[in-house]
């Protein structure tokens, strides 16, 4: 619905016409780097975000996701490489770019000295929007994130999930062309997470381009059309979630736990033969196989007796493990 609203500042109609007639990338990074003193947080990454897609940076803590998002958001100068956002250069046109972005940062920056309502209205004022427009838009946004009944509350009494939804509503107040979401559901319980996901799907259906970071593989699979996997400041691979899984993993995975370290060690050689490959983790052994059930019955026939057996589909977690040798959330 708010694709029909006039965008702030610069000629809105002309801009959306341009992006519709020429659906090139809205964000392009080439050999992008970011250093903090001697430490390189982002070490030369290349990526492209297309208009209307939902693009993810998946990676563990410290991978450089936030550093990248802050450069895209024009609140952190590049250390090297090239970045174009909405056809502009952040070094020159930071304010113009920010006028057309919606940002939901990893750490909330909600204004705890203002009410829920004023958080939206005042934020809209930072974008130069008139009060009359904001009155109707903020009401719609509150309803969209299901906070209309908390309109006069301060921010502090809100639950984590509500605060996140308010952040999302605030990020939409300028009717952005691109929504940047840095770990939109980290720290939320499953129910609150699903509520956020549902709002983000709706925005995707309205054609809002989304760029998000996450270290939850489930979130990446749910929300991203395409993603890059980041580790230690580099991109290790990119593609659609299903593509990446098909490329780097088997269809199914058998997760095994053994009663003792000795049992496990003695089982390993036979497990190697069981699937295409195995991964040995701290507590589990993962056997990669196109047919998990078959592998399990073969294993039982072989006399192996793990304490627990779980057959599941491959996920991006397995892709990450395969590409980096480490698991995503450790």
């Amino acid at each position: 619905m708010w694709k029909t609203w006039p965008a702030p500042g610069v000629a809105p109609v002309a801009l959306s016409d341009v992006s519709e007639s020429r659906p090139g990338p809205v964000i392009t990074g080439s050999d992008l780097t970011k250093s903090f003193g001697a430490h390189q947080a982002v070490r030369g990454i290349d990526f492209e975000v297309e208009a209307g897609e939902s693009f993810g940076f998946l990676g563990p803590n410290g991978a450089g996701k936030t550093s990248t998002m802050r450069m895209i958001g024009c609140v952190s100068p590049l250390s090297g490489g090239e970045l174009r956002v909405l056809g502009m250069d952040p070094r020159v046109d930071g304010a113009k770019i920010r006028a057309r972005l919606g940002v939901v940062p990893q750490e909330d920056t909600l204004d705890t000295e203002l009410t829920v309502w004023d958080n939206l209205v005042i934020y809209g004022r930072y974008f130069g929007l008139p009060r009359s427009l904001l009155r109707s838009r903020c009401q719609e946004l509150l309803e969209f994130v299901q906070l209309a009944d908390r309109r006069d509350s301060l921010v502090d009494p809100l639950s984590g999930g509500m605060r996140r939804r308010l952040s999302i509503a605030r990020g939409l107040v300028n009717d952005p062309d691109v929504l940047l979401l840095d770990e939109p559901t980290t720290g939320l319980d499953p129910q609150a997470r699903h509520l956020v996901w549902e709002r983000l799907y709706q925005l995707q259906n309205r054609g809002v381009t989304q760029v998000l970071t996450t270290h939850y593989m489930e979130e990446a699979e749910q929300l991203c059309d395409r993603l890059v996997i980041m580790d230690e400041g580099r991109i290790v691979d990119e593609g659609a979630p299903a593509e990446l899984i098909a490329k780097h993993s088997t269809r199914e995975v058998v997760e095994l736990r053994f009663p003792s370290e000795a049992d496990r060690r003695s089982a390993l050689p036979r497990l190697e033969a069981l699937g295409e490959r195995i991964e040995v983790l701290a507590e589990r052994v993962l056997v990669y196989s196109s047919d998990g059930e078959a592998a399990v019955s073969w294993m039982h026939g072989d006399g192996l007796e793990p304490s627990s057996v779980l057959v599941r589909r491959s996920t991006l977690e397995d892709v990450f493990l395969h590409l980096t040798g480490r698991s995503l959330n450790e």
Partner: peptide, 11 residues
């Protein structure tokens, strides 16, 4: 409260 960070993400 990081209010300034919020402001900086706007024009």
């Amino acid at each position: 409260l990081r209010t300034f960070h919020g402001m900086l993400a706007t024009p």
